[in-house]
């Protein structure tokens, strides 16, 4: 049996659907949400796990904006050992791939956590290295803001995880995301997740305070699209496009500019049927435009493919 039309390969990771629940928005995948259609889901990325437990940030952690939300959860998690013992066994799978998101303060720590995780390598399918949480050590730079640091962290994980697929999650808060992506790729990343939330701030005059955190939702979609477009042009590894997807058409846009898969985030909170909508739109698009697989349309509107076989094909994207 081959893959279904919407099956995708993210490097060595094979998924039945290109739809991924992005890191941090679906707990660890252990919460049973009856209305989530697992048949249409490709993978779940867990909340980010660190070596030691992290209490996370104080309230307020959530702030609605005019077209999205700011979050400041701060990577609350029980630590890798507790996670492996108490949460990993209860992650619901049903054919959905499990991607464990990890973070580390330095190279030694990220190596250690990877080593611990590799002891359980049959219990999950890939690792996502979160180098880009805007809510930790806010005054310092994020690892993914430095090509050198990105390279060191990715190498530290890849040396230990070997054949285990490694996805690297990047921040849009950089001068040139293409440079960071290249450095992750060169260091051994199998795929990229982009974008993480965008650093942002709200003013709350009711309490005369500011709310800082990471912005998500429709307001970041065009930042994500531009990042995916630019990186796809230069990069040779698959991209999971994330940022402000609230419809099937949004997902199609990410794929058309270069994403091989799409991550859903806060849009799912607003619309619990988003997984079905994205899946059904992508299926319909392939069928109506006579494409065989999703890989055929990845990057369709990216200038990288200008000389490619797909240019000039009269597909009908505006109907979606």
């Amino acid at each position: 049996m081959g893959m279904s039309a919407l099956g995708v390969k993210i490097g060595p990771l094979v998924m039945n659907s290109p739809i991924v629940m992005a890191g941090g928005i679906f707990s660890y995948g252990e919460v049973n949400i009856d209305f989530v259609n697992y048949k249409k889901l490709g993978a779940i990325v867990t909340k980010t796990v660190s070596l030691k437990p992290r209490k996370g940030n104080p309230q307020p952690r959530i702030w609605e904006t005019s077209s999205g939300m700011i979050n400041s959860v701060g990577l609350q998690n029980p630590g890798i050992k507790d996670f492996i013992k108490n949460t990993l066994p209860s992650i619901k799978r049903d054919g959905v791939k499990v991607i464990i998101s990890i973070m580390g303060e330095d190279e030694e720590e990220i190596s250690r956590i990877t080593r611990i995780l590799m002891g359980e390598k049959n219990s999950y399918n890939a690792i996502e290295l979160n180098l880009s949480c805007p809510n930790v050590n806010r005054d310092e730079i994020m690892t993914s803001q430095s090509p050198e640091m990105t390279s060191k962290f990715v190498k530290s994980v890849k040396r230990v995880c070997g054949d285990m697929p490694l996805i690297v999650k990047l921040s849009p808060n950089v001068t040139d995301i293409v440079e960071i992506a290249a450095s992750a790729e060169e260091a051994g990343a199998d795929a990229l997740s982009m974008i993480n939330t965008v650093k942002a701030l709200s003013v709350d005059f009711k309490n005369n305070r500011i709310i800082e955190g990471g912005l998500s939702g429709p307001s970041v979609k065009h930042i994500g699209l531009k990042a995916v477009y630019d990186v796809y042009k230069k990069s040779g590894i698959p991209i999971i496009g994330i940022g402000g997807i609230t419809s099937g058409k949004d997902a199609l846009e990410y794929i058309a500019v270069g994403a091989s898969a799409v991550g859903l985030g806060s849009g799912f909170f607003s619309n619990p049927l988003l997984i079905d909508e994205v899946y059904d739109t992508l299926s319909r698009f392939l069928r109506e435009n006579r494409f065989k697989t999703l890989a055929d349309i990845t990057g369709l509107l990216n200038e990288k493919k200008k000389q490619g076989q797909n240019m000039g094909r009269n597909f009908r994207g505006k109907r979606y």
Partner: peptide, 26 residues
Amino acid sequence: ENRMACGMGLCYGCVTKIKSGSVWEY
């Protein structure tokens, strides 16, 4: 009560401090 994003136990946005043994957790 608290501000919520997911309202389903997924995002950890609405947390409050609760005792857990001799310590507390959100």
